[in-house]
Design a protein around this nucleic acid. Sequence first.
DNA 1: AGAATAGGTGACTCAATAGTCACATGTCAA
DNA 2: TTGACATGTGACTATTGAGTCACCTATTCT
Lengths: 106, 106
Amino acid sequence: MTADDLVFKALADATRRFLLDLLFVRDGRTLTELESELEMTRFGVMKHLRVLEAAGLVVARRSGREKLHFLNPVPIRLIHDRWVDKYTERRVSALADLKNQLEEMS
Amino acid sequence: MTADDLVFKALADATRRFLLDLLFVRDGRTLTELESELEMTRFGVMKHLRVLEAAGLVVARRSGREKLHFLNPVPIRLIHDRWVDKYTERRVSALADLKNQLEEMS
DNA sequence: AGAATAGGTGACTCAATAGTCACATGTCAA
DNA sequence: TTGACATGTGACTATTGAGTCACCTATTCT
């Protein structure tokens, strides 16, 4: 399993993406706090966090009996750089912004 | 299946990422040409291209009996924008560049 | 027309993954 | 020190997805 594979497999699940969304809004949350935002059992959430950690998308730090989770955006940026040409980036970025705006309007 | 899901599931497979890499280098290739770059049978490649098309990562155009495939980078940019804060983007980008350089050196 | 070429469909097998549960360890606070 | 809390492990089930194959359609070229 390559580093790439870990990242993309981690992002392939909607629950894990939602966890990243939660951490994007606010970092440093515990497993229990994250679990309370989901329908899933604690074990399911824990498994997902393990996958995200292994991929480097989430970094965790223990504090007493708690484990705090932080979002690491670097792997996401690397995905971007793999297929978005530096020279055409401005144009693509403009298109992406437009798409976002259209969706916000509807 | 949401639009998100289609994109991330499409990216979860190493063969499909390799197809994107091929199209990133040069666009407008046919199924047969792409197949020749892979160990897989034509059917396998075709399935993967269907998935990439459904996700909007690849756009195809028929020309006679051939089907030409093109890379569409917009969904990739949207992934980036989802978790990389506009304000911290410069810093993250610098880190990503550093990581790329380190890997090229080793 | 007939052969070769490019692409397409539906069913099948095998492997990987999501989610749950019983059970277990370490930490805090009264 | 006892009970409550936060996290962790291994096994299990059900679902999903990758890859192949037999068979099929459409286009080009002689």
